[in-house]
Design a binder for these strands. Structure first.
Length: 583
RNA sequence: GCGCCCAUAGCUCAGCUGGAUAGAGCAUCCGCCUUCUAAGCGGACGGUCGAGGGUUCGAAUCCUUCUGGGCGCGCCA
């Protein structure tokens, strides 16, 4: 439970009460009122801007209004002091018992601590990865995969009903290129020396596909016309590539609920249906586009095309739906695909894609707005580039020279947990340096290690406790009954406050679709924990285990248990496995 | 030419949807192990939040104009 919300309610009702009593005007609008942790912890535990946002309506000076509200706020349970500060902030301080009670809540909830109901069962569709089935995943895909997967887990924790989806682009020209490339490998499997022309895929991951083709079809296609073999070889190769990609995803711990095929969508008439739907609403016409200014394509010539009125929905220009050969553009099938997702029941759609698709955002949002008549909301998260580094030096990659590093190679080198965590140490739209040396280092420079180490340290104490206090009941329910009032060191209280904020963080991260906030929170929590740990080196009384004081030991173990649970809870959202031991 | 993203300490980055004296880590300097993991902790130093203007009780955050980077701009996806 996000306790800041509880305070928000309390204060709103205080405002109502004061209105009823004639001390404030009627009909005060508290919508801009917030309750937050103050920026500086020395200001208190909860701060509200109530007086500043309401002063105009109340026709009072902010500080006067603050004083009026403060008298009432002081009567709320567990409030020990209320101060008015700065331009009219009301700072609220809470009793230690409040934090001790929160600690019990954590122990009772376990890793479900932080679960929220703000999603209210709403359906969200998160589409991510959607890499073309033309080769193994690279690191950039990996980032999109992790961002999407963590976002989906986060939304689920916040009470949304989430569908995790992968869109297979198996209908365009790129898969034809794949088929031609695979065909060459097929000939190669018969001993022919081949040369891969410019424009085809040179990667040797297609060699086994060629051999499989030989096994499956024998020499059937060796002297055939392309029109005869293309479709079958294409289907075969796409399957092989999707198997490869699914394996990459599995190794990364990413799982999708639904795989949607563009080809099927086209063949089932989905695209025609979507176009017809837009046509009925007068949103489609045939017209000629202006050539793009500045960089003009060489072979540009004006041509009448089937266009969607994207400009009526916030896009800059109208967008083409048909290619000159009469087949649909990628945009056309993507409209149909989003239409399909909407009709399957999601009114919140999220796409995670590479930043190089940035130019696509406006038109897709326009299309969703048009198709759903404004009912569906589309958010597009762009995953920026990942720079592979080693010890500060960029890792040089070239597809031609065969020094291209795949996602799988990176995972094998550093483990999937490291990849997942590091991918979330930046906002999705900021570039990310992924340094092999740094991310595998066991030091505080490495955030993955730092957080895992905190978790492992908790468990190290548990192991020690099991040795020294063999008959102590270490279950959550038993520890919750300890005398928690013994936990009153400032570091201990800070830890409890941080853990109490976890539900609020989950809600904020979920609402803003920003899973990277989890990583930062975990880092802060780990840091506070390491700090407490080290206090024990100078001050023996702050160590966790005390042979001569069972009550204190139990209380400290309760705190440790809670810390390890909250870290585990956060790592779970990131899809990272909490480690109990690091050496 | 147009559109989107970015600009915060010497470096790499946070900044909770407009709040109080802008925060971490690295680097530099000074401290802390007879200890449940020193693989760690504490302190010091470090800022005209790219520049100017605007909106209001209040701006790193919103609007606008510049400057400097990245991406994109019909028949690729």
């Amino acid at each position: 439970m996000n306790f800041f919300k509880a305070f928000h309610c309390e204060i709103s009702s205080i405002v109502e009460k004061l209105s009823a009593a004639g001390k404030l005007p009627d009909g005060m609008d508290p919508s801009r009122l917030t309750c937050e942790p103050p920026r500086d912890a020395s200001h208190g535990d909860v701060a509200t801007n109530a007086a500043m946002v309401l002063c105009k309506q109340a026709k009072m000076k902010p500080r006067d209004l603050a004083e009026l509200l403060a008298v009432e706020i002081a009567k709320i349970d567990h409030v020990t002091s209320v101060d008015v500060a700065g331009p009219g902030f009301i700072n609220i301080r809470l009793a230690q018992e409040f934090w001790h009670a929160k600690l019990c809540d954590v122990l009772a909830a376990g890793t479900d601590w932080g679960n929220s109901d703000i999603g209210n069962g709403q359906t969200v569709n998160v589409e991510y990865v959607s890499a073309n089935p033309t080769g193994p995943m690279h690191v950039g895909h990996g980032r999109g995969a992790v961002v999407g997967d963590a976002l989906a887990l986060l939304l689920a924790k916040a009470g949304y009903k989430v569908t995790k989806e992968y869109y297979i682009n198996d209908a365009g020209a790129q898969v034809d290129v794949l088929a031609r490339s695979a065909y060459l490998r097929y000939r190669e499997a018969f001993g022919e020396t081949i040369e891969i022309p410019e424009g085809l895929y040179p990667g040797d991951y297609l060699v086994p596909v060629g051999e499989k083709l030989k096994e499956t079809f024998g020499d059937k296609w060796l002297n055939a016309e392309e029109s005869d073999y293309l479709d079958e070889i294409k289907a075969f190769s796409i399957n092989a590539m999707m198997d490869l990609i699914r394996e990459d995803l599995a190794v990364l711990g990413v799982t999708h609920d639904v795989f949607s095929s563009e080809k099927e969508l086209v063949e089932n008439g989905g695209v025609d249906k979507a176009i017809a739907y837009l046509e009925e609403r007068g949103l489609i016409y045939t017209g000629v586009l202006e050539p793009p200014k500045g960089k003009k394509p060489e072979d540009w010539e004006p041509r009448p095309q089937l266009l969607f009125k994207a400009s009526e929905f916030g896009d800059d220009v109208d967008r083409p739906l048909k290619k000159s050969d009469g087949s649909g553009t990628y945009f056309a099938s993507d409209i149909a695909y989003h239409f399909d997702k909407f009709q399957r029941g999601s009114d919140q759609l999220i796409d995670v894609m590479g930043a190089d698709h940035g130019g696509y955002v406006k038109r897709m949002k326009a299309a969703v707005k048009a198709m759903s008549e404004g009912k569906a909301e589309l958010d597009i998260k762009l995953a920026q580039m990942v720079n592979l580094m080693d010890n500060g030096e960029p890792v040089k990659m070239s597809k031609r020279a065969g020094t291209f590093i795949t996602l799988r190679e990176v995972i094998n080198k550093v483990t999937k947990d490291v990849v997942r965590f590091i991918m979330l140490t930046r906002k999705n739209d900021a570039q990310l340096d992924f340094d092999f040396a740094k991310v595998t280092e066991q030091s505080k420079d490495n955030p993955v290690f730092y957080v895992q180490y905190a978790h492992a340290r908790c468990h190290s104490v548990f192991r020690k406790a099991d040795e020294e206090f063999a008959d102590l009941d270490r279950t959550e329910t038993a520890l919750a009954k300890a005398d928690l009032s013994l936990l009153n060191d400032e570091s201990e209280l800070t830890l409890m406050r941080l853990m109490a904020e976890w539900p609020r963080l989950i809600e904020a991260a979920a609402e803003s679709h920003e899973p990277h906030r989890i990583t930062y929170y975990l880092y802060d929590l780990a840091s506070e924990f390491h700090s407490l740990w080290n206090k024990g080196t100078g001050d023996v009384s702050l160590r966790f285990l005390h042979a001569d004081n069972l009550e204190l030991t139990k209380a400290r173990l309760a705190l440790l248990k809670a810390v390890s649970l909250v870290i585990a809870s956060g790592l779970l959202v990131l899809g990272v496995e909490p480690r109990e031991e690091l050496r």
